[in-house]
Nucleic acid binder design. Structure first.
Lengths: 233, 233
DNA sequence: TTGTTTTAAATGTATATACAAATATATACA
DNA sequence: TGTATATATTTGTATATACATTTAAAACAA
């Protein structure tokens, strides 16, 4: 009978699973090659192969003499380095502040339902936040989350933790999608961002997944004059 | 005496070099594990390790029973899937056409010099092309190239081959940088793209490198109503 | 000619082994 | 106490080997 799955893949899956489930958290040491080899009844080189793949994909880092550790941030998005607006601002040594304008359960409309993978009219949690850099609005973040994903979403205050941070602590993100367009803001948006309705904006529609599961949809709107996306890779 | 470099790395470097130099071109089979092992006087598993790394990084693909081949497009840019505007349009089963508005040698101004890594006032080749999808302008491509990179640049007609295609045939691209902003077009741009000056546009500044060497700078402007960038990874 | 079977070639997986190199800890010594 | 030194642990590199699996081509049969 042919083996259904190579042995190293079983080990790989076990490690992936454990990282996803936060059994192993960032910077934590995972079992040594020898330990894994013994536990799974394979040779050291087989365990090595499983680990090597995860290292190549950026999930793990290894230090000779020390061990193997869960990677810090998961270098997952060389795509658009929007990551966390709060961190990004702090990296520039500027002050981040935010106002929570809305936080509620809503019945989703048709386009949102499609993006969120639910049926039209179903309930979803909705948040609307303006992020400021040194007091100046630079991002309007509108987000939809499926209730079963984050039941306590509406109880958050999102003051020192952005929705993005909150969700990524619940679900390590494994995939993301970005759609970028240039738009003119509608009246409400221009008011919230304190810009003119003739000022072009970048609109980024971002969806994030954790282990095949859609975590949330966000629409991020940035004034063109105050923001740009960059990537290098 | 300690070995300066692991043996598998020597093999890896050899393969990388050969791919960069177009000794092995896309889809071409590279030497088998056994052949590499013999040539470098190592065991098959050592050759395997070199190949496995390049496969993990997307430079090579392997097919059991067949061999190892240079990867199609180099999955290098999971960042922004702008790739080739002509291919992109054809993938949508639409008609691509383009007009060459300018093709000349110019003395670069200060900001361009900075981006291109030359001194202000030095000569560079400059092209300005409008790309159309089914007759409608969707991209204004302005490009600067250092003369020593592509001495025959000004002799091209860029009819069935875009500058991007032309350059990527000369230099396999190894890295790229994107900066995306939302802008309002100036008068010349709006005229060329046949849009109103109040229509927001995506401006993508893209620089590409081949083996550490800057190949070209391009500024791509898309009407916001007719284009969007997307990425998933 | 057409279809089937065999064979060779190439990668895929797995083991057992060996020694090197880096690191932290324990130990011995001054 | 502080400083070398030895030791154990862990990863890094490398080999030789074995058999499985996939594919294409060659040989064969109808």
């Amino acid at each position: 009978m042919p083996r259904v799955q190579p042995r190293y893949k079983a080990i790989r899956s076990y490690l992936e699973e454990a990282i996803r489930n936060r059994e192993f958290v960032a910077d934590q040491q995972i079992p040594t090659e020898m330990a894994l080899a013994e536990r799974f009844g394979v040779s050291r080189m087989t365990a090595n192969k499983a680990i090597a793949e995860l290292v190549a994909e950026g999930y793990l880092v290894r230090h000779q003499g020390l061990g193997t550790f869960v990677a810090e941030v998961r270098a997952e998005s060389p795509l658009l380095e929007i990551r966390n607006i709060a961190d990004e601002i702090r990296d520039r040594r500027h002050v981040h502040s935010s106002e929570l304008h809305r936080l509620e359960a809503v019945a989703v409309d048709a386009p949102t339902a499609l993006r969120l993978g639910v049926r039209e009219g179903q309930q979803a949690f909705h948040s609307l936040i303006v992020h400021r850099e040194n007091g100046i609005p630079i991002q309007l973040e509108e987000r939809f989350v499926r209730p079963e994903i984050a039941p306590d979403y509406l109880q958050q205050r999102f003051e020192d933790k952005t929705p993005s941070q909150y969700l990524s602590e619940l679900y390590p993100l494994s995939e993301m999608e970005h759609i970028v367009e240039a738009i003119l803001p509608d009246t409400e948006t221009s008011k919230l961002l304190e810009i003119d309705t003739t000022e072009p904006c970048l609109r980024v529609d971002r969806r994030t997944w954790s282990d095949q599961k859609l975590v949330s949809c966000a629409r991020l709107i940035h004034p063109g004059s105050r923001y740009r996306l960059s990537s290098r890779g």
